[in-house]
């Protein structure tokens, strides 16, 4: 039993790490521009799919080059999304921006369908398929890549926001756009950076996890929803809270799949999410805000 639980925990952390990266992307865009980006999951899909496409076949690119290009392509998509879909609709209502990003997500999925078709693809594992045994539980080397990669990126994002001038400028825009503008910060550029960074995180999640979960043109939908859930669970206002929310959601799902029912694992995740929203609407790690009358 204990070994089984260890196995669930390991799986949960791997899945949770992916959620965490998507949630982090959500939180960054939300904090920078007050937009919940429903196309976040498509970043994951585009990253994974382009990596597969670039590296596949006899004259495919070497893996590291393919990965780099795939991430680069996704970042471009993120930047273009901001520039041509989000920026023109500034000041629109919550519902309007939600539909714009959903439209973008359908559009990107449509493009992926056109380019890559409906097939399911796998990316080769980065460093072999030889399982690692921990007690009775097993772990693939790729799981370590996912966990390690996520850890590095989360720390990187944290450092970016707390120690670099650009990171602080992005944060300033999220606090007060007008004030940031008056301080001479190029708000438009900062928005592009936020979307680019968010797309980068999504693409990294995509390429890291693709060898384990496979990928297809519609793989982004569920991941996007899970990322949104995770971000809300942890607290949208706090990027590190979103990361914690992602890990937590992964663990909850993996444990409920193993111990209760695999069919209902997603439902259990959403039930817990609802409970958190009912009793602590600002998220587990967010700060409550006071409304002024």
């Amino acid at each position: 039993m204990a070994d089984q639980i260890l196995q669930f925990l390991l799986t949960g952390i791997t899945v949770g790490a992916t959620y965490a990266l998507v949630a982090l992307g959500f939180a960054i865009i939300y904090n920078a521009s007050d937009v919940v980006n429903f196309a976040q999951g498509e970043f994951v899909m585009i990253g994974a799919m382009s990596a597969v496409a670039l590296s596949a076949g006899d004259n495919g690119l070497p893996m590291p080059v393919a990965l780099l290009l795939a991430v680069l392509i996704t970042v471009c998509v993120g930047v273009l999304l901001q520039r041509f879909a989000i920026a023109p609709a500034r000041g629109a209502s919550v519902v309007t921006t939600i539909i714009i990003t959903i439209g973008a997500s359908i559009f990107l999925r449509g493009v992926a369908l056109l380019v890559w078709g409906k097939d399911i693809f796998a990316l080769p594992a980065f460093s072999g398929e030889q399982p690692i045994h921990i007690g009775q539980a097993t772990l693939l080397p790729q799981n370590l890549w996912v966990m390690g990669g996520t850890g590095v990126m989360v720390l990187g994002v944290h450092w970016f926001f707390s120690h670099t001038a650009v990171g602080k400028a992005v944060l300033a825009c999220s606090c007060n756009r007008t004030a940031a503008h008056l301080m001479g910060i190029n708000v438009g550029l900062m928005m592009l950076i936020a979307y680019g960074l968010s797309a980068f995180l999504g693409a990294m999640a995509g390429v890291l996890v693709a060898p384990i979960t496979f990928t297809s043109y519609d793989a982004g939908v569920m991941l996007g929803l899970k990322g949104f859930s995770a971000a809300i669970l942890g607290g949208m206002g706090n990027p590190m809270g979103a990361v914690a929310g992602g890990l937590l959601l992964g663990l909850i799902e993996s444990l409920s799949a193993g111990l209760i029912s695999s069919g209902y694992k997603d439902a259990i995740g959403f039930v817990i999410l609802l409970l958190v929203l009912f009793f602590r609407p600002s998220g587990l790690f967010g700060r409550a805000s006071v409304e002024r009358v």
């Binding site: 439209g103 493009v111 056109l114």
Partner: peptide, 17 residues
């Protein structure tokens, strides 16, 4: 094959403009 893509684009453009 273009259906999904065009649908998404129409949705986006309509909401933007």
């Amino acid at each position: 094959d273009y259906e999904v893509m065009i649908f998404g684009a129409i949705l986006m453009l309509m909401m933007i403009f």
